[in-house]
Write a protein that binds this DNA or RNA. Structure first.
Lengths: 348, 348
DNA sequence: ATGAAAGCGCTAACAA
DNA sequence: TTGTTAGCGCTTTCAT
């Protein structure tokens, strides 16, 4: 006497075939919109009904093994906790889902395995492509993907050699906006808290700062100190160095908002007021920057759009292996708030 | 003359077997730490070397098809853009990677497909388990997972029937902390901006508020208005209703930080100062809440730990199908900052 | 301790 | 238009 199956086995395409009285391959064709036209309309309909009735759920895994496409894309983030990556990730998943891809997220943040280990894990899952938000200017991971022939694009940060497509903000222009704004307010001695020079954002924003200073009609004094990381603590530390080295500055341009918030901390600690004593400009315009005190003037980057663009580049690359490599550069704009003001007359 | 393969075919276990001069199954045993002991030590070593030399990368997909385990876990978020979910996600991935799982993230935020569609997509990828951060008190998705026999746990929000394990904060206690603090400061007329009652956090925090009011020795007046969503805009709108209905209140307890920030907006718009005219308490203690003006007094939830706990519950459930269903409740604590103060004497 | 062989669920080339 | 067949890369009985 056959015992009734207590453990429910998942419904396969074969079960559907049996119920519909056709062969499994016919079911496969009927169920896949791309091949449905190969099946007689009414038959396809009855197959669909059978599948529905059984509660059939396709198995991507098995399909992937056969087709060589997993419909999985890996996203490697430097640190999920950093608020700028949430909208980037959101933009990426939003675009990818339109083409049927799901997103595996790997966080290379503190306490995580090495980025290389994470990358190998993603590749082991046979992702169809990768978005790296972690890229340094000279990035070994990119080479690894290229070797393995896995489509890859970069987001937010680019590498020095443009081996793969990237979606980034125009970092130099962003700094120009910041410096122009400060000079327009009357500032003549401006400091920069640079990001890590190993990251494109760190280097390009520093270069952008220097270029913007040079390009002014007015001669300016400028100073800069590099932060060791994009964090509030590193920002406070670098701001301290900057203020010690150049106490005459009347404004600080930070390479990112977290650094700017660190600068707030440093100013407060020294009894300096913002913007009365020192103006501060950030970069990224993260969520809530309008609510901090003083509200932060910042270079706004459309992170969500940037994520979408990166995903778009990847989709194109996954569709055609020979898709051209290119860099999509989004134009930032300055959002002026309360952290910048004209220097006091006696400071001039 | 055989042409050299221009397109690099991925290295399979067979290639390794050939190079090592053994059968594929031996390679499989040698490469898997769990079965390595079945293979002679020196042979295993030489197989490992062969794999290394060829740059062999295992194919989880093929293994999954065979073993029925994908090493993939799905995480369904209500809205990646909401800052509380970043640390939760971080905690989840951190714990799961310890057991070799990768995380597929699906965002049910604005503009996304329906949660049901996303869930089916995750199931199609044959995830070994699911973490739902989206649960309503009466959630159809949970039932769907149960039907499909997919291990599932909830995080941050619980459902009314405790069908599955969940990691949450003790929402009622959180509100007690908030109310006790305000009463201790001398407040006697307190308003609550509640979250959506369809969410456990919304309902339990409301109940917690009411219970905390009742439990005071001093008789109090209390009022509440529900926000339609956990957003700054909805918070401003609900705060407006609250102030209109009960202008005599001296303090507002919001069901979450975004609602509290919305209350800030509403107060500012009406020319009311915080904390001089009205004290405000938030809930969650999101990143940056120490920097908004005024710095927000808030009920701190350890979101990262909560994510880890949820992942832990899921791992246990995935290991043993009969693992007990339970609720892990983290104890919140109050972080007092500048948004709360004693009411002015004439307000008493 | 190792090899042989079957098969996970699906798709695609080929046949009819 | 539909069925037949083979096989994606791996793991796991079973046999040796």
């Amino acid at each position: 006497m056959p015992r009734s199956p207590s453990k429910t086995r998942p419904i396969t395409i074969k079960d559907v075939a049996q119920l519909a009285g056709v062969h499994a391959s016919t079911v496969s064709r009927a169920l896949n919109p791309a091949t449905r036209s190969m099946v007689a309309q009414d038959l396809a309909a009855s197959i669909l009904r059978a599948a529905q009735k059984l509660g059939y759920q396709p198995d991507h895994l098995a399909a992937s093994l056969r087709t060589g496409r997993s419909l999985l894309v890996g996203v490697l983030l430097p640190d999920i906790a950093n608020p700028v990556f949430a909208p980037i990730l959101s933009g990426i998943t939003e675009r990818l889902i339109e083409d049927g891809y799901s997103t595996i997220v790997a966080d290379a943040g503190p306490g995580a395995p090495s980025a290389t280990t994470l990358l190998d894990g993603l590749i082991a899952h046979r992702v169809d492509g990768l978005v790296l938000a972690t890229a340094t200017r000279d990035d070994a991971l990119v080479g690894r993907c290229l070797e393995r022939n896995v489509p890859v694009v970069l987001v937010n940060r680019a590498e020095a050699q443009a081996r793969v497509s990237a979606a980034v903000s125009d970092d130099m222009r962003g700094m120009q906006l910041a410096v122009d704004h400060l000079v327009g307010l009357g500032h003549r001695r401006i400091g920069h808290i640079a990001g890590p020079p190993t990251l494109s954002t760190g280097l390009l924003r520093l270069r952008g700062f220097e270029a913007a200073i040079r390009d002014q009609d007015t001669p300016l004094e400028s100073f800069s100190q590099s932060a060791t990381a994009y964090s509030r603590e590193a920002g406070a530390e670098a701001a301290g160095r900057l203020l010690a080295a150049a106490p005459q500055i009347t404004a600080i341009v930070a390479a990112n908002d977290l650094l700017a918030l660190g600068a707030y901390d440093a100013l407060r600690e020294r009894g300096l007021r913002c913007p009365e004593d020192i103006s501060v400009v950030g970069h990224n315009d993260m969520p809530l920057m309008d609510l901090v005190a003083p509200a932060l003037t910042s270079v706004r980057i459309e992170h969500r759009a940037m994520g979408r663009e990166a995903a778009e580049l990847l989709v194109q690359r996954m569709r055609r292996a020979d898709a051209s490599t290119r860099m999509v550069m989004l134009t930032p704009r300055l959002v002026v708030r309360g952290s910048t003001a004209a220097p006091r007359p006696e400071q001039r």
